[in-house]
């Protein structure tokens, strides 16, 4: 399980981005983190694998205190934390297979990664994952030849190739069209269930979050202002997170066009922020 205690982050000479976040997530739970832009969602998940160094506070995963690890130990800890990015963050000039195999970098010595001679088990796992995300025919394509949805599938495969205990997911759907966004969210949710993965998903589309996660954490100004099941996300809670807005109108629009109105979720999202 993941435990965050009193986590704060302040960039040099600025207002704090995170103020004393405390959060506990049991194994296998999928958590959606919502909040307006600048609420600190992205900093929060980057503090967990220390791509951003937290100013104060503790993060521990499976009773390992990540915030106290040395560089070397940190790299070992990062191997077990898969990360999925907003703009996919694939290395565009490498092939799909190389991108997926880069998930093993923390496990193999430099010479193996340099000569691209990964252990057979890693290669088999990579093929299985590509098959799972529906891209088995694309192994030798260059990553920049793929569409947005396909790229995010490669990103998911790369994260899973790490054989992680936990997934950090940063706005996985922000660069995708509504239909693909839904497919990707469904895929992430299914995979988490298959593997019993704990996941923290930053997402700005409230409706998408409600549909696919088990628990929602609302962030505003670097503080947790909501924590509960998706069903508990009522108007009062939304106002606490995002400020005043006509939430009934949003809901009505959502109810009017439940499945077919996906194209409009981008517009609705725009209304939220």
């Amino acid at each position: 399980m993941l435990r965050i205690e009193g986590l704060s982050k302040r960039y040099r000479a600025g207002v704090p981005v995170l103020r004393g976040i405390t959060l506990e997530v049991p194994a296998g739970q999928v958590v959606g983190v919502i909040g307006p832009s600048g609420a600190g969602k992205s900093t929060l998940i980057r503090c967990i694998n220390r791509l951003v160094e937290p100013t104060t506070g503790r993060v521990s995963l499976k009773d390992i205190d990540i915030t106290a690890l040395s560089r070397r130990r940190l790299r070992q800890a990062r191997r077990r934390i898969g990360m999925i990015f907003q703009e996919f963050a694939l290395v565009e000039r490498l092939s799909v297979m190389e991108n997926v195999l880069s998930g093993r970098l923390g496990y193999v010595p430099f010479w193996r990664s340099f000569t691209r001679r990964f252990p057979q088990a890693d290669i088999e796992a990579a093929f299985a994952l590509l098959d799972r995300v529906g891209l088995s025919d694309f192994a030798d394509q260059r990553a920049d030849a793929l569409s947005g949805g396909q790229r995010q599938r490669v990103g998911i495969a790369r994260a899973l190739e790490q054989n992680p205990d936990m997934l950090l997911v940063d706005e996985p759907t922000a660069s995708l069209d509504p239909r693909t966004a839904r497919q990707i969210m469904r895929l992430i949710r299914e995979i988490c269930e298959e593997r019993g993965l704990l996941a923290l998903i930053n997402i700005h589309d409230v409706l998408l979050a409600q549909q696919f996660v088990q628990r929602i954490v609302g962030l505003r100004g670097g503080e947790i202002v909501f924590d509960g099941p998706p069903a508990g996300l009522n108007e009062a809670a939304l106002t606490r997170i995002y400020g005043e807005e006509d939430w009934t109108a949003m809901r009505r629009a959502a109810d009017d066009a439940p499945e077919t109105g996906e194209e409009r979720s981008e517009e609705r999202m725009a209304g939220l922020i």
């Binding site: 694998n49 791509l51 790299r75 070992q76 800890a77 990062r78 191997r79 934390i81 990360m83 990015f85 907003q86 703009e87 963050a89 694939l90 290395v91 565009e92 000039r93 490498l94 190389e98 880069s102 998930g103 093993r104 970098l105 923390g106 496990y107 430099f110 990664s113 340099f114 990103g155 790369r158 790490q162 950090l168």
Partner: peptide, 25 residues
Amino acid sequence: EAQAEAIRATGAGWWQLVNYAIQPQ
């Protein structure tokens, strides 16, 4: 930087970062 960040997040070392994220770019 996003590509480099993604490689860093896999637990890659400095040389691997250079080889996988910097060199292709």
